[in-house]
């Protein structure tokens, strides 16, 4: 974990989406790392564990397994999963696989921002995990 500034790993195959997330969360003063697919994200995490992982799961080398593997190497890092129009089944599976929070795209930036902030604050104060489940835009 870098000095003062938490590190957030953004994983999405869509460059625009990554760009949006970076810009949207920039104001919070996080350090961003990016990955385009599951393998890349894995390598990135192995190099250095981020303070939070914000990831799509419909990726090359993605899916619910990808969250499982990720959780195996970073047992305490909050993982926020976003996926386009995911249904309840996906949500349940993802949370069971170890995700900390779940969003269905499209997601309001504000909601995402507050969730990320909350998770990072909680992580900073203690190692206590809090599962946050959020619905996307209703």
């Amino acid at each position: 974990m870098a000095e003062g500034k938490p590190t957030v790993l953004v994983v999405d195959d869509d460059g625009e989406m990554r760009s949006l997330l970076r810009d949207g969360l920039w104001s919070e003063g996080y350090v961003f790392r990016e990955a385009q697919d599951g393998d890349e994200a894995f390598l990135s995490v192995l190099r250095a564990v981020p303070d939070l992982i914000l990831t799509e799961i419909r990726l090359a080398a993605g899916g619910v397994d990808y969250i499982n593997r990720l959780r195996a190497i970073v047992p305490n890092c909050p993982i926020v999963v976003m996926t386009a129009f995911g249904d309840e089944k996906v949500q349940v599976d993802v949370l069971r696989a170890g995700a900390t929070a779940y969003f269905s795209k499209p997601v309001h930036l504000a909601e995402l921002r507050s969730c990320v902030k909350q998770l990072l604050d909680a992580g900073r104060q203690a190692a206590t995990k809090k599962v946050v489940v959020r619905e996307g835009v209703r």
Binding site: L20, A84, P106, V107, L109
Partner: peptide
């Protein structure tokens, strides 16, 4: 729609997010 959801979801999120940003 189900098949398209993923394809639409991310661009929509980009639009929404950009507008909010």
């Amino acid at each position: 729609a189900s098949g398209m959801a993923h394809e639409i979801g991310t661009p929509m999120n980009v639009i929404l997010g950009r507008a909010e940003y």
